[in-house]
Write a protein that binds this DNA or RNA. Structure first.
Length: 860
RNA sequence: GGGGGCGUGGCGGAACGGUAGACGCGGCGGAUUCAAAAUCCGCUUCCGAGAGGAGUGCGAGUUCGAGUCUCGCCGCCCCUACCA
């Protein structure tokens, strides 16, 4: 059945492995700090080595970075392009709980697999710098950095509410909780106060916000971080409580509306709820607070404006600006975790307060002028205006009024200007086994002592079971010998919590610079050369947490003198997700893309069981001929549409996969995988092969003379490739190289031009480029060759085709000399038959000549 | 609700304010082949037999000229959310 292929036919499998071995043995891509060279640090977000292996999304950003890295090397840069593993994490631990297999074993296996897969894609990593966050030689420095944080007063223990899952006996991260249940198992999750390590990221809020201005990041990501930090400028205002000396404080961004406060609201958890509640309201308030406590945050937010709930406490507050008595309510739309957990409610100028006031019949008093026709009784006016009903402040614009009222509050001690943040301190402990142990001990007197850096590392002890202990302590409690220790001669207990997965990824980019260092996380001298990361590419899902945490640590390390810049990642770029088509039959079953085919012209309509609308399609299951509905979605098991990158490598080779992933479309865009498109790229690479290699003899075909047309295509391709890589637009260069090969028509140009083509092809398809480079007589890799320059003169033709428009519509084209003057062009344009026809009987009012482009006649 | 992004052929996508649809897929036709695969060449936005006309989500506007700029809608995607 198998036709024996000519041994000289295009066969990537025949040489790709050989070149990967060559690069490895020759250490072609070793990063060497060279003070005589500019440096470039290209970094991809390192993967979590999951059990399911590499997916087709990984090679997208990795290929883009690899192209940049190879390009920069050829442009004389010392390039740092490393790879490693975000190896601590939950899936391995969960797997361990289920199967008893130690996470270290699972993780090592997964890393081996990932590494094998990545190597088959031919990325130019310096594998000597490989790191793993779960390696004790790595995490001892994560612990070292924790000690620095502690030293700086940025790490502390606090009792905080956490997501406690009784069934699992552990605390869950917010993202693991959905609808009050553990996402994986559906076990209920409750709020519980626990003593936890916190990192004081809020101390860096202003710097994290302000320094965003100095980095070259997508504006959308900066905005997401800004929103997350959520700095707002407002005022804290103290409200007295009628009939009591106590007072409570509210936070507002609109102190100018203070005269419009017609009630106050305390969050159900607010400590003063009890004190302000009167006897006759007590039962109602207690009941309300009890219900609110058991509601998850999500449930509390679900209702939106329509059905806000709340209960009057019976108590009254005194508005400090006018002494007015306003009722105090308790309502769960006020969150204890934001601001002061209490608000003054101004229904005329806040939508939430308006909805609440309307529902409970509370007066709405307008204190800021609204536009003509806007009735604040019907809808809140949240914009600015002139103050009214505000005593001495009447007539002031909103900004001025804010300042005056705030100043007045400060003068009489009833309030002050206040900057507030949404950003919370970072909950930094997890009741997990598979993470970095904390370098601290607990003494019998209840104090906590940080270890000396000399005592590091605190190695993760071996345990055989990974569930919490029977008495509810974290899994590390099982390592009894490890837990019992001494500190300066005193008996001490080790910390049973571990650090969250974010910890290791907060500084890995630094370790790559100096992975062998045994006395510091990174030598500041080395960092001064390689840092900061010049280009960081990763998924948008890390837009906030990872990137914010890493920036925070970096700033702390800057403050202690370890790094020399305030920001770690100069340029950030987000690749778009790769989606895939999914094929669903009438019964609702999904079929693998490989099992389906399009039969053009065989369109049928069928009635699926899963929707009322009939479906028209020309896609069918190959084997059964069943029609299938085609849709697009995330790759995954549920749609049966995953594509394994190594299957693609097996069929088409690594170069085709790499080049196709770039050819699909702009890197930042979400785009669907189409294996047929990959095949198109494979064909292109085959044409390149056949351009150089005689299919019968395997000999290199003779070089010829470069035609003018080929020369133009070549220089257009050099230009596009160069500018494209610089601008991270990787798709159009592939088109230009295709055009070049098409222009060659199967005949090699001159040796010099053929070599130039291989050089610009090499970042995309390095194996093929190396193979052909060797076959035409080179005995050394092309990775160190000089990137070619294009000749602008080669792009210019002697004659140009010019479009001729009449009233903006193209009516014909003319061929003129490139440097023809306007008069000549106009004459030729008017002579064009179809143009002449459209000009007939009209008066030319205006003649527009765009040299080398077009002519437009305005007639009337 | 807020923030960001996107709407172009059958499909993925190209287009300094200047010939819309490069390049690729798919399709059609041809060459090669005993035949097929592979390969090579040509055609392929839509309507129309043709001349020609229409055309970048919809509607206005600016301009000699708009996929591109402005305003207003419609639709889709992502993020975020009672943040006071």
């Amino acid at each position: 059945m198998e036709t024996p292929m000519s041994e000289h036919a295009f066969d990537p499998a025949a040489y790709e492995g050989r070149w990967q071995a060559y690069w490895e043995t020759h250490k072609t891509f070793r990063s060497v700090a060279d003070p005589g060279k500019p440096k470039f640090y290209a970094l991809g977000m390192f993967p979590y080595p999951s059990g399911s292996g590499l997916h087709v999304g990984h090679p997208e950003s990795y290929t883009a970075l690899d192209i940049v890295a190879r390009y920069k090397r050829m442009n004389g840069f010392a390039v740092l392009h490393p790879m490693g593993w975000d190896a601590f994490g939950l899936p391995a631990e969960r797997y361990a709980v289920k199967t008893g297999v130690h996470p270290a074993k699972t993780t090592a296996e997964n890393i081996a697999r990932f590494k094998h897969q990545l190597k088959r894609l031919g990325f130019s990593y310096d594998w000597d710098r490989e790191i793993s966050t779960a390696d004790v030689t790595y995490y001892r420095w994560t612990q070292w950095i924790f000690l620095k944080l502690y030293e700086q007063g940025l790490a502390y223990l606090a009792d905080v509410p956490v997501n406690w899952c009784p069934a699992q006996g552990t605390v869950l991260a917010n993202e693991e909780v959905e609808d009050g249940k553990y996402r994986e198992t559906g076990d209920p999750v409750e709020r519980r106060m626990m003593r936890q390590w916190m990192l004081k990221i809020t101390a860096y809020a202003d710097r994290l916000l302000d320094d965003l201005d100095q980095v070259d990041w997508p504006e959308s990501i900066k905005d997401m971080q800004r929103n997350w930090i959520g700095r707002s400028l407002g005022a804290e205002v103290h409200f007295g409580i009628a009939g009591s000396d106590a007072r409570f404080t509210v936070y507002t961004t609109r102190p100018d509306t203070l005269f419009g406060a017609t009630y106050c609201v305390l969050a159900p958890e607010h400590p003063l709820v009890d004190a302000v509640t009167t006897a006759d309201q007590r039962a109602a308030v207690d009941a309300y607070v009890e219900v609110a406590k058991n509601k998850s945050d999500l449930d509390r937010q679900k209702g939106g404006d329509k059905d806000k709930t709340g209960v009057f406490t019976g108590g009254y507050a005194i508005n400090p600006v006018n002494g007015a008595k306003v009722p105090i309510w308790v309502a769960d739309y006020v969150l204890i975790s934001y601001g002061t957990g209490a608000i003054m409610a101004v229904p005329a100028h806040d939508e939430r307060d308006h909805a609440f006031a309307t529902r409970f019949g509370i007066p709405i008093v307008q204190v800021v002028s609204s536009p003509e026709g806007h009735d604040v009784q019907a809808e809140a006016w949240t914009g600015g205006g002139l103050s009214m009903n505000s005593g001495p402040y009447d007539g002031l614009d909103t900004e001025t009024c804010k300042q005056r009222i705030t100043a007045a509050l400060e003068a009489d001690g009833t309030g002050q200007a206040k900057v507030n943040y949404k950003l919370r301190d970072w909950l930094f402990s997890r009741q997990r086994y598979w993470g970095e142990p904390f370098p601290v001990v607990h003494l019998e007197d209840g104090t906590v002592q940080p270890l000396s850096p000399d005592d590091l590392p605190v190695a993760l002890p071996h345990v055989d079971a990974f569930r919490p202990t029977d008495d509810g302590r974290p899994p590390l409690g099982r390592a009894a010998d490890w837990v019992q220790t001494t500190w300066q001669g005193q008996p001490a207990l080790r910390e049973l919590n571990t650090m969250p997965q974010w910890a290791g990824s907060c500084w890995y980019y630094l370790r790559y610079m100096d992975p062998e260092n045994t006395s510091l996380p990174v030598d500041p001298e080395v960092e001064r050369y390689w840092g900061p990361v010049d280009l960081y590419i990763g998924g948008v899902e890390h837009a906030v947490l990872h990137l914010l945490y890493a920036r925070f640590w970096h700033k702390v390390l800057y403050d202690v003198g370890l790094v020399h810049t305030v920001e770690p990642f100069t340029k950030l770029f987000n690749q778009g997700m790769i989606l895939a088509y999914a094929y669903r039959d009438a019964a609702g079953n999904y079929h693998a893309p490989d099992a389906c085919e399009q039969r053009a012209g065989k369109t049928v309509t069928f009635q699926p069981a899963w929707q009322t609308e009939p479906v028209t399609t020309d896609w069918f299951v190959k084997a059964s001929g069943e029609p299938v509905h085609v849709r697009i979605g995330k790759m995954g098991k549920s749609l049966a549409n995953s594509v394994d990158p190594l299957d693609i490598v097996d069929r088409y080779g690594a170069d085709a996969l790499r080049t196709y992933e770039m050819f699909m479309g702009p890197l930042e865009q979400v785009k669907p995988w189409q294996t047929s498109g990959c095949e198109g790229v494979y064909r292109f690479l085959g044409r390149v092969w056949r351009l150089f290699v005689d299919g019968d003899t395997g000999a290199v075909k003779p070089f010829g003379a470069t035609s003018r047309e080929v020369r133009k295509a070549l220089h257009a391709a050099i230009k596009e490739t160069t500018e494209g890589i610089e601008a991270l637009k990787f798709n159009t260069p592939v088109s230009k190289m295709m055009e070049l090969v098409n222009a060659c028509g199967g005949e090699l140009p001159s040796r010099a031009d053929a070599e130039t083509f291989l050089l610009i092809l090499s970042p995309y398809a390095p194996h093929l480029a190396e193979e052909l480079w060797a076959r035409i007589g080179h005995d050394h890799t092309l990775a160190d060759e000089r990137w070619p320059a294009w000749d602008p003169a080669a792009l210019i033709d002697d004659t140009v085709t010019i479009a001729v428009q009449v009233m903006g519509k193209v009516r014909g084209t003319i061929e003129v000399a490139r440097d023809a003057d306007a008069a000549t062009v106009l004459a030729a344009a008017k002579a064009e038959p179809n143009v002449a026809r459209h000009l007939e009987g009209t008066t030319i009012r205006k003649e527009i000549v765009v040299p080398g482009r077009l002519v437009n006649f305005v007639v009337g």
